[in-house]
């Protein structure tokens, strides 16, 4: 999987490294700002912080 990504990226290795870092940053930002806030309400350790259901 990671090997495939490395092979698909164009250019010599410094370019590949740079592209990899950009990819990693983009994925991390997407998770942090969009995916995690979206799935957070469904996490069991948040639900039911109070005893009155739907109150």
């Amino acid at each position: 999987m990671y090997g495939l990504i490395w092979r698909v990226l164009p250019g010599p290795w410094p370019v590949k490294l740079l592209l990899t870092l950009v990819l990693v940053a983009a994925v991390a930002a997407g998770l942090w700002f969009y995916v995690f806030p979206a799935i957070d309400p469904y996490m069991p350790f948040n639900d039911g912080a109070v005893e009155v259901e739907g109150g």
Partner: peptide
């Protein structure tokens, strides 16, 4: 009121 223990919801 809050959750107890931390990051869990078995008690209050």
């Amino acid at each position: 009121t809050t959750c107890a223990p931390r990051l869990n919801n078995t008690h209050r």
